[in-house]
């Protein structure tokens, strides 16, 4: 009897293993995040291979600092740092509704190697005051000019990210936006960036 129970338990454990391995969910009851922007459908899931590890650039631990220095959690006063679930929720609600944009602040060569689905590439350099066309970008983000003053009442809510905690591109983008008058309450920083995103096996796209 005891042998039978042990054998059954052993078989059950073996059978349960592959089933368990095929369900790497985002949260306990959510396997995918789906949303539609305009006419484009997006789906974000996690890699199902439980033995997957990061390779290449994002597996590195010790980039030279300077210039790849650890960024603070709050990069400018009033800028809330957020994590993956908040990013997904932002995509499903604000971005899908056209009231928010997920901004990839990295330079185009980084963006071209892989980005979070539905992200828009706005390189930090384009947001700086040294760009003579900065005002055009602010207008595209919903800022309105009237009587020589810029009004951000109907501006987009933004979530900004870069490569991760060791990368200052998002910090620079955020500080440029705040310096240009963009309200800090409309900006959030996904501090973990693409590195944390990839570390969790979440989907990326090649633009």
């Amino acid at each position: 009897m005891r042998v039978f129970v042990a054998t059954t338990g052993f078989l059950a454990a073996i059978l349960a293993q592959p089933l368990y391995a095929q369900s790497v969910n985002i949260t306990a009851d959510k396997a995918t995040s789906t949303f539609t922007v305009g006419e484009r459908n997006f789906e974000i899931t996690r890699t199902q291979d439980v033995n997957a590890t990061l390779q290449g650039d994002f597996a590195k631990t010790s980039r030279p600092c300077p210039e790849f220095c650890i960024q603070p959690m709050v990069v400018a006063p009033g800028i809330e740092p957020i994590g993956e679930l908040e990013v997904l929720s932002f995509l499903e609600t604000e971005v899908a509704a056209g009231t928010g944009l997920l901004i990839d602040a990295r330079l185009p060569d980084w963006f071209g190697k892989g980005a979070i689905p539905a992200a828009v590439n706005v390189p930090f350099a384009a947001l700086g005051a040294e760009n003579p066309y900065q005002a055009d970008i602010l207008r595209a983000l919903g800022a309105q000019e009237a009587n020589g003053e810029v009004n951000f009442d109907s501006a987009q809510r933004l979530v900004i990210y870069d490569n991760g905690a060791w990368d200052e591109q998002a910090s620079r983008a955020i500080n440029s936006l705040v310096a240009a008058g963009y309200p800090a309450s409309l900006i959030k920083n996904y501090r973990g960036g693409l590195e944390d995103w990839l570390h969790l096996g979440l989907s990326t796209v090649l633009p």
Partner: peptide, 28 residues
């Protein structure tokens, strides 16, 4: 180059907002 970069950014944003802003609206 800044104009080129801006044009790229604007077209990217336009794909999501549905509104196209062209670069150089108030540029010299």
């Amino acid at each position: 180059p800044m104009r080129d970069m801006t044009a790229n950014v604007l077209s990217g944003i336009g794909q999501f907002t549905g509104k196209q802003v062209t670069a150089g609206g108030d540029a010299p």
